[in-house]
Design a protein around this nucleic acid. Structure first.
Lengths: 234, 234
DNA sequence: CTAATAGTGTCTATCAGACAGTATACC
DNA sequence: GGTATACTGTCTGATAGACACTATTAG
């Protein structure tokens, strides 16, 4: 009972952002076997004295240069099929990170290259496609995207995709891109400004999108939305 | 990079049921160090050739005698603080199981005893209390209970707490116990019978609760509820 | 001026909560 | 009969979606 074989535990990240009107995920090109040259989710081994959230934050900082305080980071789930890594028995704990548009990613230690890629281009490729993600990362990405879509319904997390200050129009754009459906600007405005704790006006305005200047907001104190902002059922 | 120290991976279960008008969790008394004699969540080591869901199903069958097909089993999350087990570095993948009232639990291999205990009695004890759960299991249980409460809002999972056939009144009782708040019987009835895919009438009736006989239902085909059944905000 | 986006108001169908009233069992 | 639960119906206030209208900028 005390001598069970050890398992290698890794932490992988689904880092999502809204760039160029599309939901995109951070990918790194693998520099070693297995799957050398293929794209993969950023991640790495859990260190001996490190808690799981700390490992996720460290990997995120290594790959993107941002500290964990600037993004929303939460555990997604664990994946441990016995054959998921041909080298050894591994269990990976996946996290999702929701970030505002970040600077071009920096190449991490193991990664020959790092790049944002639209999730739509990654999710549905067959495993033989050299553009598909290594290991079981396509399934992890699918789960992470679905989690993000669901969380926008009942939490104010869409603000994590925006900068520190943003307009209602920018927030709506996040919803439209993540959910991949248009929303009525008037009704959206009424709903989000009418939900207490969602938005906090800064007093400033901006006209960066053209048209009449829009009020600027910060994320409010609420951690959940009552009532939720539901996606219309098909 | 390929020689990271192994970690012991365990699977722990938050098995929930509604018994005697209270939400209860399955606990086992530890038969070995550490925390010998203390109550803990059922669980055990991940076996070398076993996937995570398979390990959770196996542990559930060992502790309760029920097969995984009879209960709802889903991953809750992973816990890996470096000091969570004094013997060695462990990461546990927690699952929640929602079950109808089960036969009295059978003692598992490692467990000197097994017992249902109301979650309210387990969740808020200080760590020094000998009745409190071992390891970080109180925190895992808290997370599992909150997950179950939330899932009742937007999925038909409350049916997992009922037998194969049940009445609307029994289903409402599940909601009232899990959410710990009374619900209006008339409005509840209208809502659940009006949500397509939630319930499927069997044609039979029963008078096991006294009063006018109630129609019997099975769980329907829906996997999510549109619109959700929201808990009133306080 | 036009075009664009921001923000407010209004209408309507629907829905949640409150609760009256009827149905059918057991005692 | 009384009491329990099951079920249906009705009312009212709130809300979601549709969309008209005004406000304020750029060009």
């Amino acid at each position: 009972m005390t001598d069970y074989p050890g398992v290698a535990v890794t932490v992988d990240l689904v880092v999502l952002t809204v760039r160029e009107d599309r939901l995109q995920a951070l990918t790194v090109r693998r520099g070693e076997e297995p799957y050398v040259g293929r794209w993969a989710l950023p991640g790495g081994f859990l260190r001996p004295e490190e808690d799981l959230p700390a490992a996720a934050g460290r990997e995120l900082a290594e790959e993107t240069g941002v500290s964990a305080g600037q993004v929303h980071l939460e555990q997604l789930g664990s994946y441990g099929a016995p054959d998921r890594d041909p080298r050894m028995r591994t269990v990976t704990v996946a996290y999702i990170a929701l970030a505002a548009d970040l600077p071009v990613p920096v190449a991490g230690t193991d990664a020959a290259d790092a790049r944002w890629q639209p999730v739509a281009d990654l999710v549905d490729r067959p495993a033989e496609d050299p553009g598909s993600l290594a290991f079981d990362h396509a399934a992890i990405l699918r789960d992470g995207v679905e989690r993000a879509r669901a969380k926008l319904e009942y939490t104010p997390l869409a603000t994590a995709f925006c900068g520190r200050e943003f307009t209602v129009g920018e927030l709506r754009h996040v919803y439209e891109v993540v959910w991949d459906r248009p929303l009525d600007p008037r009704n959206f405005h009424r709903k989000v400004t009418g939900t207490t704790g969602f938005l906090e006006a800064t007093g400033g305005t901006t006209a960066r999108d053209g048209g009449r200047p829009a009020r600027l907001y910060r994320a409010g104190a609420a951690t959940s939305l009552h009532p939720p902002l539901l996606r219309a059922p098909v």
